[in-house]
Structure formats: structure tokens, C-alpha cells
């Protein structure tokens, strides 16, 4: 623990900013029902499309204004932070597990297994993942769970590619050869010898992936192929804001700023982790 604090205190200014925002984000998401000023579906018909407090007609009652049904934007923003965080982390974890396992297998065994996995990677790279995601969500039906699954199973490629390449070089190291020589089984070598030396890269890629997934979820939702409009997410809020862009600009700007600051923070932290732990990964994302 002491070490963690030491590393953080030596980090860059942007990384500190990122860590603070991420910590706040988690707190807000966890405590959403406690800190949100209204209930998520509270409708205040009299206050429809009320502008934020800093505008002329704004009131302190609805600090960030209200939408076309009179729902409080701040409340929805707070609840939306939960969805983004869940999607980002869970989908990232699913992608990481699939990608790391495939990368380890491809790199370690080589031969036919490697050829198959490498072709799979080629196909995924030849095909913008957003289409695959759109297809799958449309087919499975739009729901939070499906979006997470879809982003998870389409997001494994960067992990598999990077890990495979690293395994290829780690495999030639003496300690792996020694383990092989004393008769360790393949699985043991993969998980006990090789995995620890590639786990850093996986975690760094994973951090960045959280941001990518959050943006992907918002984009899918915006296109109407993600999370259904009944759930408050930042993507849905922006999509909804588009219909009122000519008279209620805050419905577009406010959730977008949240999304921007969130992803900026994740990227700051990811960049910093990479620079500290593994400069070789520069430019892979």
C-alpha cells in the first residue's frame, strides 16, 4: 500500500487529475441514489426544458436544467455514470480474459492453433468492430447485458495481438526453457511462467479499453443500437438532446462533457501506467 502511494505521489499532474476524477466517478456511481437530488424518473411537468442554473432563466432547483419531460439532468447524469462505469469495466474484463487467453495460446503453441487465432485477428481487424457490435446488438436485442457481452466479445483483439507478440519473445527466455526442461506441463508454464511477464501489458491495455468501451457503448446507444432509451445513460441523453438541439443545447453539451472528462481521465491514467510500467506499448492503441 505504501508503495502505491509513493508511485502515485510521483506521478504526473495529468495522471493525478485522472485518478482523482476516477475516484470521484466511482463514489458518485456507488452513492447515486443518495446524492442525486431527485428520483431517477421524477417528472416535473411545470419545469420542462428548464435551462441550467447559470443561464438567465435557470433555477437552483435544477442545477443542470431539465429535459423535455421535466426530468432533472443532474440526476440522470449521476445515474448514467453507473452504466458507463459498469459497461466499461465489465466489457473490458471480458475482452481482456478472452484476448489474453487466446494470445497466450497462440503465442505459446504456435503452429495450427496460432494460424487459426491469427486469421481470426485478421478478420476482426478487416472488419470495423462497430459493425459487428451493431449486428450483434440488433440480433440479440438491445439491453445493458447484451451491450456488455457484445463489447466484450468484440474487444479481445488488441489484447490477443499484443500478448501473442510478447509471448513469442518470452518463450525463448531461459526460465521458460528451464521449466520446460524439468518437465513442467504446458498449462503450468503458460500460467506460472509466462503470464506474470505479460500481465502488465494486459492491465495497461485494459485501462485504456475501459475508455474505449465507454465511448463505444455511447456511440451504439446514440445510433439506437445499444442500451434502450428507457435507461438513463450518457449516450441516450446525448441522442435525446439532438432532438432539442435548437432550443435546449445543454441537453447535448452536459452529458458530452461528462463523457469527455471521464474518458480523458482514463486515458491519462492509462498513459501514465504505460510510461511507468511498459514503454514498449507506446502507440499500440
Amino acid at each position: 500500500m505504501k508503495n502505491v502511494w509513493k508511485t502515485i505521489s510521483r506521478s504526473t499532474r495529468t495522471a493525478k487529475f485522472g485518478l482523482v476524477v476516477m475516484a470521484l466517478w466511482i463514489i458518485v456511481a456507488v452513492l447515486a441514489p443518495v446524492i442525486a437530488p431527485y428520483d431517477i424518473n421524477d417528472i416535473d411537468i411545470a419545469q420542462r426544458l428548464a435551462p441550467p442554473a447559470w443561464e438567465k432563466k435557470g433555477t437552483i432547483e435544477h442545477v443542470l436544467g431539465t429535459d423535455q419531460l421535466g426530468r432533472d439532468v443532474l440526476t440522470r447524469l449521476i445515474y448514467g455514470s453507473r452504466i458507463s462505469l459498469i459497461v466499461g469495466i465489465v466489457a473490458g474484463a471480458v475482452g481482456m480474459v478472452i484476448g489474453v487467453v487466446l494470445g497466450l495460446i497462440a503465442g505459446y503453441f504456435g503452429g495450427a492453433v496460432d494460424a487459426i487465432i491469427s486469421r481470426m485477428i485478421d478478420v476482426m481487424l478487416a472488419f470495423p468492430f462497430i459493425f459487428l457490435a451493431m449486428l450483434l446488438v440488433a440480433a440479440l436485442g438491445s439491453s445493458l447485458g447484451n451491450v456488455i457481452i457484445v463489447l466484450g466479445i468484440t474487444g479481445w483483439v488488441p489484447y490477443a495481438r499484443t500478448i501473442r507478440a510478447q509471448v513469442l519473445s518470452v518463450k525463448e527466455k531461459e526460465f521458460v526453457k528451464a521449466a520446460n526442461a524439468i518437465g513442467c506441463r504446458d498449462l503450468r508454464i503458460i500460467f506460472k511462467q509466462i503470464l506474470p511477464s505479460v500481465v502488465d501489458s494486459a492491465i495497461i491495455l485494459g485501462t485504456m479499453d475501459v475508455g474505449t468501451n465507454i465511448l463505444a457503448e455511447a456511440s451504439l446507444t446514440f445510433l439506437g443500437l445499444g442500451i434502450p432509451p428507457s435507461i438513463a445513460t450518457w449516450g441516450n441523453m446525448i441522442a435525446n438532446g439532438r432532438d432539442y438541439i435548437f432550443n435546449a443545447g445543454w441537453l447535448t453539451t452536459i452529458p458530452g462533457i461528462a463523457l469527455l472528462i471521464g474518458c480523458l481521465s482514463i486515458n491519462f491514467v492509462g498513459d501514465w501506467l504505460r510510461d511507468v510500467r511498459d514503454p514498449r506499448l507506446r502507440g499500440v492503441d
Binding site: F222, G241, R242, I245, F246, G249, T252, G256, L260, C263
Partner: peptide, 22 residues
Amino acid sequence: VMGRSIPTFWFASLMVLIFSVQ
């Protein structure tokens, strides 16, 4: 840094807001 973190769909909407609406 901004370019990596701004979702395209929001950036586009923001431009509409600034250059078309305002």
C-alpha cells in the same frame, strides 16, 4: 489528447450546436 477522448457523435453534435445553432 482531446481527440482520443471525444466521442465523434458528440463532437459532431457540438459543432452543429456552435456553428449552426449559435
